[in-house]
Computed example of a mutant assay.
Amino acid sequence: MTSPDAPYHAHIYYDPAERPVAAAMRDAFGQDPAILFVGAMTDRAAGPHPIAQYEVHFLARSRDAVVAAIEATGLRALVHPLTDDDLADHTTLAHWIGEPVELDVTVLDPPGVNQGVPRFGISDF
Rank of each mutant, 00 (worst) to 15 (best):
E18L: 07
R19V: 03
A72G: 02
A17K: 14
P50S: 07
A60N: 15
E55M: 11
R61W: 06
I97W: 07
V101W: 09
V21A: 12
G39P: 02
F37K: 13
V66D: 07
A77L: 09
I97F: 05
Y54I: 01
A88G: 04
G74V: 10
V38M: 05
D84L: 02
P110V: 11
P118C: 06
P4W: 08
E55P: 00
L36R: 15
H57T: 01
H90K: 04
H49W: 07
T42C: 09
P16A: 09
R19W: 10
A77M: 11
A72F: 05
R61Q: 14
L59I: 02
Y14Q: 01
H95G: 01
V105N: 10
A77K: 12
Y14R: 01
I70A: 00
S123I: 03
S3N: 13
D5S: 14
S3Q: 09
R61A: 15
D89C: 10
A23N: 06
G74R: 09
R61K: 15
R44T: 08
L36F: 06
A88L: 12
E18S: 13
W96I: 02
A22D: 03
D64K: 11
S62I: 03
A88K: 13
A40P: 00
A22R: 03
D84K: 10
I51T: 15
A10R: 07
M1A: 13
A23R: 12
V101L: 07
L59A: 08
L75H: 10
L82C: 12
D104K: 12
G47T: 03
V117R: 14
A46W: 03
A60G: 04
Q115W: 06
R63A: 12
H11Q: 05
A17E: 14
R119F: 03
D84P: 00
L108Y: 07
L59V: 02
L36K: 15
G74P: 04
P111W: 04
S62L: 05
P48V: 06
Y13H: 05
D43H: 10
Y13T: 02
A34R: 15
S123H: 03
E71F: 00
T92D: 13
V105W: 02
V107W: 09
M25K: 10
A28Q: 13
H57G: 05
D32W: 10
A10P: 03
P4Y: 08
I97S: 04
V79F: 09
A94Q: 09
A24V: 00
Q31N: 13
I12S: 06
D5G: 11
V66W: 06
T73H: 10
D64A: 13
H49Y: 09
V66R: 06
P50K: 11
L36C: 08
I122K: 15
I70T: 04
Y54R: 07
A68C: 02
T83N: 01
G74T: 04
V79W: 03
D84M: 07
P118W: 04
Q115R: 15
G30E: 03
D89S: 09
V67R: 15
A77G: 09
A68I: 03
D64Q: 11
A6K: 02
I122P: 00
Q31G: 13
R19S: 09
A45S: 15
A23S: 13
I35M: 10
E55Q: 14
V79D: 05
P4N: 08
Q31Y: 02
F120H: 14
I70F: 07
A45T: 08
T106I: 04
P16D: 12
E18Q: 14
